[in-house]
Every structure is written in C-alpha cells, then in structure tokens.
Amino acid sequence: MNAVKKYLGIVWIALAIAIAYFSIGIFGGKLTSGKQDDLVFGIIIFFILLPMVVTGLTIFGWYAVTDEYEED
C-alpha cells in the first residue's frame, strides 16, 4: 500500500505541473484579449485560483511521496 501511495504522490505532482502548464496557455490568452470580461476572468483564475490548486496538489503529492500519511 505504501508503494501505491508513493506512485500516486508522483501522479499528483505531475498533475500539478500539467495543470499549471496548460492553464498558463489557456488563460494567458484571456489576459491579452482586450475585453474587460476576459481580463477580469483571467486575473481571477490566473492569480487566485491557479496558485491555490497547483500548490495544494503539489503539497498533497509531496506528503504522499515522503510518507507523511503513514501510521505509526
């Protein structure tokens, strides 16, 4: 079971990197579109939600890789 946790931790970290990469590509265009609606939406997603999601997935994956969830 510990091996599964470690592999899934790596999956969570890889998922965080993939989300960051694709979100920058998708929502980066919203910041430069020139429309006010797109700009507000892009700022909220890009500067508020994206860092929270990527940080949460990375920390969760790191804890799984380093056996923080292991029972004593």
Rank of each mutant, 00 (worst) to 15 (best):
M1Y: 03
N2Q: 15
N2A: 04
V4M: 14
K5A: 06
K5I: 07
K5L: 11
K6N: 05
Y7F: 15
Y7P: 04
L8H: 10
G9V: 02
I10T: 00
W12R: 02
I13C: 06
L15Y: 08
L15W: 08
I17V: 07
I17W: 12
A18T: 02
A18C: 08
A18R: 05
A18G: 13
I19Y: 04
I19D: 06
A20P: 04
Y21I: 13
Y21M: 15
F22N: 09
S23P: 07
I24M: 14
I24A: 11
I24V: 10
G25Y: 10
G25V: 01
G25K: 06
I26Y: 13
F27E: 09
G28M: 06
G29Q: 11
G29P: 01
K30M: 15
L31R: 03
L31T: 00
L31C: 00
T32C: 04
S33I: 01
S33H: 04
G34H: 02
K35M: 15
Q36F: 13
D37M: 05
L39A: 07
L39S: 04
V40N: 10
F41H: 14
F41D: 13
G42L: 05
I43Y: 10
I43Q: 08
I44D: 06
I45E: 14
I45A: 14
F46Y: 04
F47R: 10
F47D: 10
F47Y: 12
I48R: 04
I48P: 07
I48E: 11
I48L: 09
I48S: 12
L49R: 01
P51Q: 00
P51T: 09
P51W: 02
M52K: 03
V53A: 14
V53I: 14
V54Q: 06
V54H: 01
T55I: 11
T55E: 13
L57V: 09
L57R: 05
L57M: 01
I59T: 02
I59H: 05
F60V: 00
G61W: 09
G61S: 01
G61F: 06
G61R: 11
G61D: 02
G61A: 03
G61Q: 05
W62A: 15
W62L: 13
W62S: 13
W62N: 05
Y63W: 12
A64C: 05
A64I: 00
V65W: 00
T66Q: 07
T66M: 10
D67T: 10
D67M: 14
E68C: 09
E68H: 07
Y69K: 03
E70H: 05
E70V: 12
E71D: 14
D72K: 06
D72N: 10
